[in-house]
Amino acid sequence: MNIGLHEYLMTSALLFALGFFGVLFRKNTLVIYMCLELMLIASTLALVAFSRFNGTLDGNVFVFFILTIAAAEVAVGLAIIVALFRKRHTVQVEELNHLKN
């Protein structure tokens, strides 16, 4: 049995699921951001695998765009976290409920 598309897709799905559960379960904003990154990486892995097994280059080119977007997103998100920390002195999501009342 050869390593096929199935195995890569399973790895990608597991990685995405772990990122998803991390976003649900963790309370630290920084760790939530890392889990978001895990989900992005999982999607890029699926794209590269599909691209390889279909014999085209389009998926790989899309991964370039995803990497660019991810870098920009991390920069903006961490700037938001730093601004939030300066204002509220916490990065725990359950304490960031100022808009609630």
Partner: peptide, 19 residues
Amino acid sequence: GLFVMLDAALLAFVLLLVY
């Protein structure tokens, strides 16, 4: 490493560089 196995060595390099 998985990217390298999928014939996308350039993307693996970019991934390591960026991430």
